[in-house]
């Protein structure tokens, strides 16, 4: 076959009609960044990390290939060694690539909306953590119920609520639970009930 390497790079990497979808607010531009080198070659030298699909709870295995020089994920596909999915992925699983930094729609800054404001403002983390902790403390201190009318100890706060999450790791769930119980939160629930 006499297809040149250059021709093939073009063939595989630059399909992009790239329909502009500004009406959706989405950047659907073609993923051209790696067209100069074949993706398959890049993957050979990439760092491979195993992961688990973030959607339904079949929990299929994934292999995430990261270009270590660019610090970017270049490919995600099924983990063929995983006994449940044996490399297979459904539509959502095959699309996990678009949950990563490759998707320009990701949130990358703390956003704050002030009372009665019509816009988001970007904020630094230290500010956000301090302000949230202050509000949680103020609400808790104002409304904490140590004893009910019968004199029984209840140590709870009924004016702070918590929801979530079936979508974070076990360890994160545990720390979240510890924080909420320590605050005295009783209105506490997550997706298991929807």
């Amino acid at each position: 076959m006499d297809l040149t390497r250059r021709e093939f790079i073009l063939l595989s990497g630059a399909a992009g009609a790239g329909v502009a979808l500004s009406s959706l607010g989405l950047d659907l531009g073609p993923l051209r960044a790696y067209a100069e080198e074949l993706k398959i070659d890049k993957i050979k030298s990439a760092k491979n990390t195993t992961s688990i699909c973030p959607y339904c709870s079949v929990s299929c295995g994934l292999i995430v290939s990261t270009d270590t020089k660019a610090g970017k994920i270049i490919n995600i596909e099924g983990d063929p060694d995983h006994p449940i999915n044996e490399g297979a992925l459904c539509a959502k699983g095959a699309s996990v690539f678009q949950t990563t930094a490759n998707n320009p729609n990701r949130l990358t800054k703390v956003l704050y909306r002030a009372p009665f404001s019509d816009k988001w403002e970007e904020k630094p983390w230290d500010w956000a953590i301090t302000e949230i902790a202050k509000r949680a403390k103020a609400t808790r201190d104002a409304d904490f119920i140590e004893k009910n009318s019968k004199g029984q100890i209840v140590n709870r706060v009924e004016t702070i609520a918590h929801l979530g999450s079936s979508n974070i790791d076990n360890e994160e769930c545990w720390t979240l639970n510890a924080m909420m119980r320590s605050l005295g939160v009783v209105y506490l629930d997550h997706q298991a009930r929807v």
Binding site: G16, A17, V19, P30, A35, N75, L89, A91, S95
Partner: peptide, 16 residues
Amino acid sequence: GCQIACKQWNGLPATQ
């Protein structure tokens, strides 16, 4: 899965 895996591997964009 095949339809999206094709797009993922080949870097093909979505259409409206």
